[in-house]
Amino acid sequence: MAGYIVRRTLGMVVLLVLLTLAVFVLFSLMPADPARLTCGKACSPQIIENNRHRLELDIPPVEQYQRFVSGIFFGRTYLADTKRPLECEAPCLGYSFLRNQEVLDLITKAAPVTFWLAIGGFVTWMTVGLVFGIVAALKRGRWQDRTVMGIALVGYSLPSFFIGLVLYFFVILFLHLLPNPQWKAGMPFKDLGGFVQTMLLPWITIATLNAAFYMRLTRNQVLEVFGEDYVRTARAKGLKERTVVVKHALRAGLTPIVTAAGLDLAYLLGGAIITENIFNLPGLGSLAIGSVIASDLPLISGITLIAATLIIVANLVVDLLYAVVDPRVRVG
């Protein structure tokens, strides 16, 4: 097991190196010239030249990459030759000259918003999805089943921007049931009420689509294990129906769902662009979209790196979790 984790971790590092490389190559192929973008209205060739120097775009690409990578581990100093050099301590993901901030600072500021958004949405959709999915499976073919599946179908066919906008207009602008969402630093620990008011609709927006998906997945998965021979064996042993359902059927049926959900959570943690935008939440999604629109390349690569790391780590965690739960899955 330990050997396996080491090997997987090494694999992860290789993957991340390739990823930074890919981001970097794309970065240098971009038609927009960052030096010109940071130049402002009164632009002159001289300023552009200075900017190029400031952004360290005048050194060879290989060295640029080296500095980027070594920045992550040892920190780096921009404009080492000027009077006011910019210190960026390790781990340094770069410096956004457009926003005049370190990329890592920007990300750490945005991350809690996305984190709470994702966790809340995740808990909501998993609860709804599992509970309704199991009920539908247990009441297969009856009205409960048909109702749940009907709801799932509707939820499934609504795009999240539509749900978000409808909720925003009706609940906030039209019915005034909730104040305009506004994220404040220090949430949720300061101002829990405001936090919930702000996040409620975003959570629902995120949960709807996924809950519909998970309802169907859970129902089908549970129905499938009910047909398994070992569930029949459990009944033939004379176990109580509850034990049969919970210990034998659900444990096996839900394992792949819960572990797979880990991956969905990881994707979300990388930023929920649409939802964050609709509800004006300053999370990673908003940050990412802003950086793309402004061609803020250090920020783009920083966010990409973080999101990718999350997904790769989640993959490893899910695989390990699976091996722990299902003895047939061997790692190593």
Binding site: Y4, R7, G11, G332
Partner: peptide
Amino acid sequence: DLRTYFPVRSRGLL
């Protein structure tokens, strides 16, 4: 003298 062997691989990324 027909021989067909299947390699047994460990799992994982490598």
